[in-house]
Amino acid sequence: MTRHGSSNHCLRLPATAAGLSLALIAMAGCGATERPAGPELEVEDVWVRAVAVAGDAVAPEPGTGHPSGHGAGPNTAAYLTLRSHGGEADRLVDAATEVASAVELHRTEVVDGVMRMRQVEDGVPIAPGSTVELRPGGLHIMLMGVSRTLAPGDRVDLTLHFERAGPVTAKAEVRER
C-alpha cells in the first residue's frame, strides 16, 4: 500500500557527468553549513531535528517495534536553504539518506489553526535568483523510519536530487530544536 519515496542508498548514479562532478565538489570538504551545489545554486544551513531511537538506549525486546507506516523507526525532518544565484530554474525533486528507510518532500500548513502535512508531489521549484527556505512549520524533507538515534552535534549525509544540478550530498548537522 505504501510507496517509498526513496530507498536506502545514499548516492544514486548521477544523471549526468556534470551532476557527478558537482556532487564530488560538494562532498570534498566544503564548510559545514555552506555547500555549493554549482556556481548557480547553493545549499546552506542543512540540519536535521534530533530524534531518539528507542532501541539505541535500551535493547528492545523482539517484536516490540511499533509500525509507523513504513518501518519501526521514528520520523524526523531535515531543513535547509536553497539559494539560486541566477542561471536557470531548478527543482529539488527528491532526497535520500542512509539513516532513514524512506525520504519524502513534505509541506506543513497551518490553516485556520489546523496543522496539515502533505507530500509535495512536484518537488520544490527554485526560480533563478530566488531563495527557498525549508524550515519548521513549512517545507521540509521528511525522514521516515530513522534507524539510529540522531543526537545534537551529529552529522548526517543527506543527498539532494535536483532536476538540473543532479545529486548533491550535504552534511546535515543534527540540532535539538
Binding site: G5, M115, G145
Partner: peptide
C-alpha cells in the same frame, strides 16, 4: 496520503 506515511492526522495546532 500518498507516499510512505500511509496516512497522516490533520489536527489543531494550538
Amino acid at each position: 496520503v500518498e507516499g510512505a506515511l500511509g496516512y497522516t492526522v490533520d489536527h489543531s495546532a494550538s
